[in-house]
């Protein structure tokens, strides 16, 4: 199982779509930096998150906070930097999308 990190906003890059196309069941996607904009409810990217229950979604808390955002804990779990390390250890590989 792979941990994918996404660091670009869905409004400036198509990597979230590209990444989802290659995701396998049980993979995780961690939104970091401007990637956290994908976690906002009522957006096209949030709809994509809802359409992929087979993928585990996470968002990096310091990056959400830096942008004045919060994430809905139901579909996207918030993790701090320690949680990022734990995810990197838990999943066998880390694939960065940028």
């Amino acid at each position: 199982m792979i941990l994918h990190t996404i660091n670009k906003s869905p409004y400036s890059s198509a990597i979230f779509n590209d990444c989802l196309r290659l995701c396998s069941d049980g993979d995780a996607i961690l939104f970091i930096e401007d990637g956290v904009y994908a976690t906002q409810q009522g957006t096209d990217s949030y709809q994509l998150i809802e359409q992929h229950p087979e993928v585990n979604f996470f968002a990096l808390a310091p990056d959400l906070e830096a942008r004045g955002l919060t994430s809905d804990q139901a579909k996207v779990l918030t993790v701090d930097d320690n949680g990022f390390v734990e995810l990197a250890v838990k999943y066998q590989k880390v694939q960065s999308w940028y």
Partner: peptide
């Protein structure tokens, strides 16, 4: 870019966790 700053936070957390 944010890369060197994000990586720094990650590295500090990894070291703190004993890695």
């Amino acid at each position: 870019t944010q890369a060197p700053a994000t990586a720094l936070r990650f590295a500090k957390s990894a070291i703190a966790a004993g890695h």
